[in-house]
Simulated assay, not measured.
Amino acid sequence: MTGSREDRSHDVARVVQAITGLPRPLLLVFDCDGVLAPLTDHADDSVLLAGVSDDLTRLSLVDDVTVAILSGRSLEGLAQFHFGDSIVVAGSYGGERRGAEIDALGSDEERLLAELDSIAVEAVGAAGPGAWVERKPTSVVIHVREAEPALGAAAIAAARTRQARLHGHECHEGSNVLELMARPADKGRGLTALRSEFRPVATVYVGDDVPDEDAFAVLDVGDVSIKVGAGSTVATHRLPDAGAVADALRRLAAGLAAPSGDIRSEQR
């Protein structure tokens, strides 16, 4: 998404105004890649933009404000960002929570995951160099962002066809990725669980990809949903990129956060 500096500043100002006007208790929920960290070809290379970690922590220490990360990444994959202990971290679309054990896979789920893994391995082989499989506790993810585009697209399409013959799982497609889940989960259910736990009066969700639409869809009229980047969406607001999100966080932290000490002690 492109635009002038004036357009970008206006977008950020509108989002900040919408959030600061919400009643409390307030739940602020963010996807990670593409939102707090610019997208990269390989997930291991992703880093938070400057200032984002500190601003998230400042906001998480404000009375009646809960800050959460809700990502498709596993908790292991999210660990590289070192989110502060005062921030709620949920991985695998909410299927994993930092500080909590997940239920072990049942025998049927284990068999299903093995079949899904086989599909993923075959897809990566067909996509060729640059494609790889990410393995999570309850799912496998086919990544083709670094593969030759035509081969990657064909491999994803073939994997989608193969998985359709199985039952009891879910399939989620994002930007150059396909996730095959032996234990179904999505960001709509993940966000609903967070809201049930923290019982906010208002909720904000910020996301950039197709799976985030499930989260946008469960929000109410009085909530704020923010789509980052281009593409169709049901979100009520839009920001052009992760840099604009960082700008909004900086303004929110300055406006909402009470003065505090050296927040570096709050970081993991």
Rank of each mutant, 00 (worst) to 15 (best):
P129A: 14
A37S: 15
S92E: 08
R24S: 14
A254M: 06
L249W: 10
G3K: 06
A104S: 11
A157N: 05
P211I: 11
A68W: 00
V124H: 02
E96P: 02
S260D: 06
L178W: 05
S74Y: 11
R199D: 15
A193S: 11
R264T: 15
L191R: 10
G168N: 07
V228R: 00
A150Q: 08
L256W: 06
D247Q: 12
D63R: 15
A230D: 01
A147M: 02
A257M: 09
T203K: 10
H237T: 09
H172G: 14
K136R: 05
L56E: 05
R73S: 04
A164S: 04
L48W: 07
R264L: 08
P25F: 09
I263R: 03
A155E: 02
G34Q: 03
A90L: 02
G261T: 10
G125Q: 10
S53P: 00
R162T: 13
E109K: 01
V224G: 04
A104W: 02
I119E: 00
V140N: 02
D208Q: 10
A202N: 05
L239Q: 07
A202R: 06
D45G: 12
A258H: 07
R268Y: 02
S92R: 03
A154M: 08
V133N: 00
F216D: 03
R189T: 13
Q17K: 13
A114M: 12
V121C: 03
D247Y: 06
A150P: 01
S86Y: 02
L219H: 06
Y93R: 05
A50M: 09
G106R: 08
